[in-house]
Every structure is written in C-alpha cells, then in structure tokens.
Design a protein around this nucleic acid. Structure first.
Lengths: 344, 344
DNA sequence: ATGAAAGCGCTAACAT
DNA sequence: ATGTTAGCGCTTTCAT
C-alpha cells in the first residue's frame, strides 16, 4: 500500500531540495535560519519554497525533535460560563508562543480522565493544564505523572506534586458571608461542591471563618456541599426554602449554580432581596443582568488561563523551578443589589 | 545532540520486542490485532507491554500512516454562551471516534485565520470545523482548500465549495417578528451582524419577510447590522432609544448581544415589556433568568456540533459524497414574558 | 558552505 | 507464524 496516501500529496523538503538543486540538509538550514548558507543558495531555496508552496511537516518535525508544540487543556464542561474566558486566554497565550491547544472535556468522570491521560501520553503533548475530578485519587495522580510533562492544575490542590493556579474562594466567601452577617443575617445557607475538592472546601472554610466571631446562638450557617451544577442549586435551594425556619440568605458557591438557585427562588414566588438575599460565589454575565443584579464573588478567568500558561512556559523553557509553584488568584466581592437587611 | 531528549525516555516498540524476544513487526501485529500471531507469542508480547507500561507513539504512527486523528475547530470566541454547547458536543463525538480536538480562537480576524490555516496545514490535521470571518474572501477560501482536508463551515454559506451546518435564523427571526407584529408593533428594530455574513443576512431576510404582507405605512422596521457583540447591542440600543419616535420592540440578533441591549434599556430606565418588547435572536441561560424572561429564538448548539462532526466523519470514512452537504438546523420561538401588546 | 547519511518509532510489504 | 527491512519527512552530525 502506498504510504501516506490519505495525507494528500503535499510537497516535502526533498521536492524543495530537488527544485533548488541542493541537498535536503541545506533546505533545512534555510528553513531554520542557520547563518551558514550563501546568499545565492538561500535565494534559490526560498524561491523553490514559494514556487511549491512548501510548508514543513510538523509531524515529521515532532518525530525528529521529540517535541510536539502542543498543550492539552482538560476541563469539566466548556459550556460553563466561567471556563470560556480561561480557555480564550490560554489559547491566545499559547498561540503567541507557537503552541497549539488540544481541548478535552472530562465531565468530571475519572474514567474519562484516565482515558484522556493515556491519549495525551500517546500523543506526546508537551504539557498539560487540568481541573481533575479528585485531588486524592492515587491512580489519577500516578497517571498524570506518567505523562511525564509539566502540569498545571486549575483550582486543585495537590501542591506537593503539581503546579497550580488556585482561586481565593475562601476569602471571597468570607467577604460575602461577612456582608450578609453585617446585614443581620445569621440563617445563611452555603451551597457548594463537595468538600473533597478545593473550591468547595475553601468556600466552606471561608464561610466558617466569617461565623467564627459570633456568639454560639447566632451560628446558624448551614452548608450543603454536593455539586456545582445548576441542577444541584435548584434541588437544594428548593429543599432549603421548604424547610422551617428557612434561611434568610443564600450563597451560590459554584460556577453554574446561580441559575438553578434563582429558578428555585422564583418558582416559590419569593423576591430577591426582599424575601431572601443572594450572593453568587462566582460572577457571570447572568449575575450582572438579573433584576436586581446579583452581588457576586469575582475573579478574572482570563488571568487564571494566562497564569496557567505562564507557569507551563516557564517549565518548558527549562527554568528548573525545583518546587511546585502554587499561585493564588485573588477574588473581590462585587456589591450589587441582591442583599438587603434581614427582616423578621 | 541526543535526539528526542525532551521527550522523556518512554519505552518504544523496540524495547517491547527485545523484552519479549520477538521482532518489532510482531509487536506491531499484536498491537494492531492481526490474527496471524500465535497464542504464545501474543502472550509474551502482551506481558512485555504491561511490564514496560508501553504506549504506542502517536507521532510515529501519524508519520507512518499519514493520518493524525486530529480535528481542528476554530471559533470566534469560546466565551460566547452558545459555542460551549457546540464544542462540548463536537469534542464528545470526536473522542468516541478516536479523534482529538484542536481548538483555536480566531477573534473573527482574517489574519489570525490565515495564520491558523497555515499551522493546521503544517500539523496535518485530518479535518476542519470553522466559522470563518468571511464568505467571499477568495484568499481565505483558497487557504481553506489548500489544507486539503474535509471542512465543515459553521453557520456560513459557501455552499458550492464546503459542507456546512447552518441555522434557520431566517425562519426564527420571521416568527419573532410576526409575533411582535401580531401584538401591534410596527416600529421594530432588528440589531444583528453585518449582512455579508450568513447569520445577519438571514435574520434580515426573515425580518423583511414578516413585514412583506403589511401596508406600506406600517413597514417601519429598522435594521442595524454591524456586529454580534454585547457592545454593539449596547451602543445601537442606546441610540435607538434616544431617537424619536423610538421603536416599540427590539430584536437582539446575535449570540452575545442580548446583555448589551438589556443594559441599555435598563440604563435608560425603561421596563420590559411595558415600555418596550424584546426578543432574543439566540437563546441562552440569560434569556431564561431575567425578569421577565426573554422570548427567544432557540436551536440546539449540541446538535450543531454533532452534525458537523457527523459530516466530517462521513468524509473521513471515505463515503464520497460528490457534492457539498448543507444541513439546515431548525429554530423554534420560545415564548416567554418579554413581549406585550403595543401601547401608545 | 554544502552534501551525505543516520535515525526518531512505527507499519506493511516482503521474505522465509 | 515470524523476522527483516524500507521508508514516512525532518534535523543534525560528520565529512569535505
């Protein structure tokens, strides 16, 4: 069988060499800008390249050089509002450095992650940006390490082993909770992801920090940790609103959760902020456009993406940072109109 | 210089062969499931593979086979609400077929697209899904064809040359406009992208179709075609609301545009739907969560992504469809609470 | 300054 | 059933 039949018949360095009547090595030298090529030969080669519309074959280059100029980015779900900014920024930065982005959706399923890591190993990607489904799973960690390339975790904490960009959910949630407490709320519910994952864990910690100074009888915070999804937000909010006494304030501690929470509030016929105060634990277009607008914990997804790539590029350029680097990205509380003083 | 030094020292088929005391060809046969391998040898090879944790090098396979099992997807901006679903679905379907997704952001800039196409050519991707910045630009078309692989355009119409998945914006906008006209509105403004691109062009056509039956003095539709962005939506809405007589109904004909439009309406102190009726030309989480919820033209982004990949896979599997395939994805009008009868 | 040739890891054709 | 080998396109070392 003819080799490479499906690759089309793109010109190779051999064709260029023949056309310019030089050796392939010389063409390679021209392509890679080596100085030791005479003006005359360089001209002939350049002309041949243009005449043939030659483009180097990156697969062959990767084969020879042992580097693919490819970085993989694996996220749970790219349709979640926040991730778009991260990916946009990461792609742009990678592109500017000559890298290509390989995107994978994990759905937060371990088997997909494992399968993915195998593919990435086989594909010989140069680096890896990932939000894993677990921080403790040994098999997962092992497989990540086995890929054998620089890794940056997104909002995950395996800090002894891997670089990471983390978000200060703790500080953000603390500020949000303090705002609510300052308004007289004490029956506040935090809905967030399971505490085995950093975002949920840190939000819970911040929540508890805010309550720490209060007298015992005012420590009425309740935590529902189980997921980041709109679905979870809807179910838990509905349950909470049906309980008695019901919370007077709610914090939606997850990227996709706000919509479910608002839906539940609305379907129960309650008004924000008169009947109930709401804070979003992650900012989004949605938070800024509801009526009233929703007070939210904000951070820059673009910075998150850029910093992740920056860390990667440092490693790839061989700056041998001995220890894992863990960068904490700050959050700020954007005050809008969804929180009001408590009323009995 | 040692070759492949940065690739780590992953075991090769050679190592497996040595460990199992067989020839590399035999290992290859085992890997690729050829029948003509004795039980005994197959066992030895399998053991060696596991012992060494060997994984085939896809770069080498690509080199040899002339196929990379990689598909590129290029969109304007992945943070736009709608694209996430398309990409999610496309990635899932590609993965199930053993393909890997390469994602690029074009920002709707021609130079980026051109640069990208060069990289994709060099990378020898197997296929291409793309929403181009232009349907007429000859250079762009030429470069797309030069990549020499199956292409599916997303909501673009170059139907003589390329496969495409297109959305029925025309029907959707017609239905939206008819709804508004039925409510007594005639001073309706459509904000959408430039008419040189299919989505804008088709929305304008649907808009005009809806007005076609009306007597001349009621044909007061106005079109502002120039962009799909929230920014454009804000600016044009602001201008429109300041004009006199101002429109009584607005259609936001773009994926990211609704937010800008609502912001402009709000900053002018107007209420939806009492002061002004609004329809979103693209549905989103936002449209379902404002108060009132926004009536919107809806379609399935997931279907869009899946169909695009389906078309690609058909081509890649060599079903030689002679002519370009152009699939039209239907839209429906989701009636919510943002449209009210006109009042003077 | 340039040519010749080795070799990256793999598959398939060709032997045996 | 299995071993041997050519060759995919490229870069780099070694000659000259």
């Amino acid at each position: 069988m003819r080799i490479g039949s499906s690759m089309g018949d793109k010109p190779t360095i051999r064709n260029v060499a023949d056309t310019a009547s030089v050796a392939v090595g010389t063409v390679s030298r021209v392509l890679n800008g080596h100085k030791s090529v005479s003006i005359e030969v360089r001209r002939r080669v350049t002309e041949a390249i243009e005449a043939l519309e030659y483009e180097p074959n990156r697969v062959a280059q990767s084969m020879r050089l042992g580097v693919t100029r490819t970085v993989a980015l694996a996220v749970r779900d790219i349709s979640l509002p926040g991730f778009g900014f991260v990916v946009n920024a990461a792609e742009e930065m990678l592109r500017n450095d000559g890298y290509t982005l390989l995107l994978s959706i994990t759905n937060e399923q371990k088997d997909r992650e494992l399968q993915l890591l195998r593919i990435l190993y086989q594909s010989r990607v140069d680096a890896l940006i990932m939000a894993t489904s677990s921080e403790e799973d040994v098999e997962l960690c092992d497989q990540i390490e086995r890929v054998g390339v620089p890794v940056v975790l997104l909002d995950r904490d395996v800090s002894k082993k891997f670089d990471s960009i983390t978000i200060d959910h703790r500080g953000g949630t603390r500020k949000a909770t303090e705002l609510l407490i300052g308004l007289g709320h004490t029956r506040i519910a935090l809905l967030t992801g399971r505490s085995s994952l950093r975002p949920g864990r840190e939000r819970i910690a911040g929540f508890e920090e805010a309550f720490a100074g209060l007298p015992d009888r005012e420590r009425n915070g309740v935590v529902r940790a189980g997921g980041f999804s709109a679905d979870f937000g809807f179910r838990e909010t509905s349950a909470l609103l049906a309980s008695s006494p019901r919370p007077t304030a709610l914090i939606a501690g997850g990227m996709g959760m706000l919509s479910g929470m608002l839906q539940a509030i609305r379907s129960r016929g309650l008004k924000v902020p008169d009947d109930i105060s709401v804070v979003a634990g992650a900012d989004s277009e949605l938070a800024g456009l509801t009526d009233p607008e929703i007070t939210a914990v904000h951070w820059s997804g673009a910075d998150e993406g850029r910093l992740a790539v920056q860390l990667l590029l440092n490693r790839l350029r061989g700056f041998k940072e001995p220890a894992p680097q863990n960068i904490l990205l700050s959050t700020e509380l954007v005050i809008r109109g969804s929180c009001a003083p408590v009323r009995e």
